[in-house]
Nucleic acid binder design. Sequence first.
DNA 1: AGCACGCCGACT
DNA 2: GTCGGCGTGCTC
Length: 699
Amino acid sequence: VGELPRRVRVVVEAPQHAAMAVALDYLSDRALPAGTLVRVPLGKREVTGVVWDEEPAGAAARPHTVPTELRPVAQVFDALAPLGAGWRALVSFAAGYYQRTVGELALSVLPPELRRIDGVALARRLARLRARGLADAVAAQPATPDPGAVEQPELDAAQQAALQAIATAAAHQPPAAVLLHGVTGSGKTEVYLRQAARVLAQGRQVLVLVPEINLTPQLEARFAARFPGHRLVAMHSGLTPARRLRHWLLAHLGEADLVLGTRLAVFASLPRLGLIVVDEEHDASYKQQEGARYSARDLAVWRGRAESVPVLLGSATPSLESWQRALEGRYCHVALPGRIGGGALPRVRFVDMNLLPRTRGVTTALAAPLVEAIESRIARGEQSLLLLNRRGYAPVLHCADCGWKSDCPHCSAWRVFHKSDRTLRCHHCGYTQRVPRACPACGNPDIQPLGRGTEKLEEQIAELLPTARVARIDADTARRRGALEASLAAVHAGDVDVLVGTQMIAKGHDFRRITLVAAVNPDTALFASDFRAPERLFALLMQAAGRAGRDAQQAAGSEMWLQTWHPRHALYAALRAHDYEAFAASQLAERRSAGLPPFTHLALLRAEARQAAQAAAFLEAAAQAMAGLDGAEAVTVYPPVPPAVARVANVERLQMLLESPSRRALQRLLTAWREPLTALRAEHRGVLRWAIDVDPLTI
DNA sequence: AGCACGCCGACT
DNA sequence: GTCGGCGTGCTC
């Protein structure tokens, strides 16, 4: 009361190119600790912001003029404890590393509902949450809890050794990140559960990250069933806004003991954090692909280090980045070498497509021996899974008379033929039309589908095995709410003999009756230009193989089939031997000699414009602007190139690669580059959007 | 990014 | 005569 107004610094959501200081100055009649949520006037509107203590890294160089007349803070979210120092440090680091403003990052990782409502509405919701004893906001117990999940199974020797190693790593200061390396069915989840139990017993919170929450209901069920006395909340973008806010608040209040979520959950406010688990750490979903392009896996490791909390990275096929760090001793490598109960890994069999009979130069879609193997599975009441990583009926329609193909008028891509609703659909911009009866170019009624997607494979299987019960799961069949759950339930119930699908079905699901997995056409990924394509293919096939024989009784007879034109390819040889280490060694050798990650560090400057020349001019000017900047001497800049799909929705895209053996030099350069880049925009009006992607997954 | 202000075409 | 198209400019 009667105190003099003082200056507070507040970060608000403002994009990179807004020529504003990183934090804005406001007046407050009382001191506000850093991390306090506030509403502040910004132009004609009022926005939510976070009080920030100091000028974040890299911001000092940005010149800005502070207006003489400061406006007062409109409202303080008194009902909410300020966001902690650990959270602020993580947001600061991520903003600096991924080249975004602190305000943009901080506000984008808070629940959208929290940004929308004011302090009064928030206080009301907090009161309601407390009045209900916090209980019913907790994620509901799964409808069908796995009865075996509640009691603790006996640990085998490898799991006991793993827990011992984790305890040792956790005792380091700061704790060493642990790479928990084990095939599907080796008992990684039980190790997570045991380590979580230790941490919960200390009264601390556990953060579990998963690639996609809707694909891992079992993990949620197992945690919920194992820790009935602890509160578990889910955190992902599929929750309703109100629920997402409730779960976030429960974590922030320290009321939730377990937080299970997708990549955005790495930014959860967790005052008692004691453990971070990153399941399937190699999964590309951990990299955000728009806005702030952060890697939740990398940030989890950073956060664990910063908060002195152990981090468990689990995978059957670790990312080569994590694997290399384990080899260097920077991560503690813990292996779970076999399947629980001594179950065998599926035998890998190849169908050499070169040896198959051809009719009119066209090879049969499914080799006869594979069809027979599926038939015998059906006769035994077992299930088969067919993997084809391409949805739709056919990737393109073609007119043999005039050469017309079903291209998209707005993108440099083919439109995919979807037979189920008779449409041609562009998977990049969504442009959809009814499939034409005749060639739009020459009127020829005989237009042919080229290639094959999951719809066609489903149809072919039904023709080859008329009595088989066939189901298909891909992004199209899973679109309807509840459809995915229903299909999965049918598979679990044994109402399906053959399951056809994209990589969606390769991930996570614990199918008990599948004894045959077949990759119908994996070769397409074998010679893709993307340097990570082999790594992704190997992981996908290993993961798919892991779907077979999860039931130890049936594991001995389980098989993984591959139809390939290149049966002697090194990748397949490693797969046949289930030898991740050999595969990783050969890939790492290639990466080292090619100067690629993890031996170098990359960043992309992406630009979008109506005309490719406008984007190119911007990127070239950006490269010029780099001269003499701190770090430039250690960074190689490559000429701008279009990405795999250059034009999407009539916007031309171009990207410029930066490469350096030194992460620090690359970071220094990117930070110094921000200001000249922002200034360049004024001279390149044609550029619609530009963004820096640090550690891009594809180049 | 929002949200203004600011000048030129088809409607009550 | 207005409603509204999105060009350009500003926000502590």
